[in-house]
Amino acid sequence: MSLQALYLSCLAHPAQALNSLALFFAIAGSWLLLATRMRQQRAMTRLSAAVALDGIEADGELDEATTQLNRFFSRFGLAVLTGALCLSWYSTQL
């Protein structure tokens, strides 16, 4: 019964349903960007601590795999946020 009420609500207010979906995507994309940034800061802190403890001169850059992973998640998060923005703009036209 509750699923039928939810379905009828989506049919009655399609713009609100799309805007809710856009809000969900925006929250997920922003969380992904924040988590990626925190992971990058932790890795840089870990790298600087290892350099300080070992006394080794380093160039201060992360390894290639970590850099590629951070770049992928940043691009994916931005794509999700862009999709959420487009979906929100589309919902205002309904």
Rank of each mutant, 00 (worst) to 15 (best):
S2N: 12
A28V: 06
T45N: 05
Q41H: 10
E64M: 04
S48W: 00
T92H: 08
S30D: 04
R37H: 05
T36D: 03
S30Y: 03
A28I: 01
L6T: 07
A43E: 00
Q4K: 14
M44Y: 01
L81P: 06
L18R: 06
I27H: 02
A84M: 11
A12L: 13
G55Y: 00
Q41L: 11
S20M: 09
S91D: 09
T36E: 05
L3G: 14
Q68H: 08
L18N: 01
N19V: 03
A79S: 13
N70C: 06
R75I: 08
S9L: 07
L34F: 07
S20F: 12
F25T: 10
L18S: 03
R37E: 02
A35W: 07
G60V: 11
M44C: 03
Q4S: 15
Y7A: 10
R71N: 06
A84G: 11
P14I: 14
Y7F: 09
L53I: 03
L85H: 13
A49C: 02
S91F: 03
A28C: 05
E61A: 05
V80M: 14
W89A: 13
G77E: 03
R37K: 09
A35F: 12
M1K: 08
A49K: 01
R46A: 02
G77T: 01
F73N: 13
A65R: 07
L21S: 12
T82H: 05
L81K: 08
A49Y: 00
Y7S: 13
W31C: 10
